[in-house]
């Protein structure tokens, strides 16, 4: 498998405070990589660098190299809309827009300039099916997306991210606001979808990382401590500090 996103020596500072101290991490295509680490370790900050979600934060300074399919995403010529179409995102709190399910899913397509109603219809159905929420929404496409349960809203958000057919989906603790059953269902959906998409997921839930990810990166205090295959890391991590974190001795 090829690396779809590569990052080299990424430093990020908020004013005088450096939050990432030079992270180099590559992500394989069509694999699910989990980013784990204690609160404040920089995992979400790093995730948000991958589709330039940190750009609007005042006094932020990012150096290093992040490439998507070989192209430097911090290049001044980079089209942000185009980048986020390829590298989508799902957040911790389900965040459907306050309009219908259909319009939520169609939103990105319309922004991308697609006007063909038939194509939009097709993509809405396909994406809702991929996110395993079609059954619950197919007769309610006009209903306000915010009227669904938390787990269903998060699935709608996943469908919204998938509708523009991204290559990579960034997931920032996608199930931490959900009940165990909804979380489990979303995990199952991600497991099925990872054959088609590349997922990079920040999670506080170590069991979740062990259950569904192929690769795991352990970050601490802004540094990448260890990276490897999830099975290797959970059964025999290379570093004592990784073992201590996985065993819940701190964090």
């Amino acid at each position: 498998m090829e690396d779809i996103i590569t990052s080299k020596d990424v430093h990020l500072s908020y004013g005088n405070v450096e939050a990432l101290h030079g992270i180099s991490l590559d992500f394989e295509e069509k694999e699910l990589t989990a980013l784990i680490g204690p609160s404040g370790c920089g995992k979400s900050t790093f995730l948000r660098c991958l589709n330039r979600m940190n750009d609007d934060i005042p006094n932020i300074h990012i150096t290093g190299d992040i490439k998507f399919e070989g192209q430097n995403i911090y290049d001044s010529k980079m089209d942000l809309v185009e980048l986020r179409k390829e590298v989508g995102m799902v957040f911790q709190q389900p965040s459907p827009f306050p309009f219908s399910v259909y319009d939520n899913i169609a939103y990105g397509l319309r922004i991308a300039g697609i006007k063909d109603k038939e194509l939009i219809d097709h993509r809405v159905e396909e994406s809702l099916k991929q996110a395993a929420i079609w059954k619950e929404t197919k007769d309610n496409l006009d209903r306000n997306a915010q009227a669904f349960s938390g787990g269903q809203q998060q699935r709608i958000c996943i469908a919204r991210a998938l509708a523009v057919r991204p290559k990579v989906v960034l997931l920032d603790e996608p199930t931490s606001a959900l009940d165990p059953i909804s979380s489990s269902e979303i995990e199952e959906t991600l497991l099925e979808l990872k054959h088609e998409f590349t997922f990079i997921m920040v999670t506080h839930n170590l069991q979740q990382a062990s259950r569904i990810s192929d690769y795991t990166a352990f970050l601490m205090n802004g540094d990448l401590i260890e990276y490897g295959k999830t099975a290797d890391m959970f059964m025999n991590p290379k570093k004592q500090i990784t073992s201590d974190y996985l065993n819940g001795r701190f964090g």
Partner: peptide, 9 residues
Amino acid sequence: TLKLMALQQ
């Protein structure tokens, strides 16, 4: 078996 225990708990 060991993998199942470590990863699925």
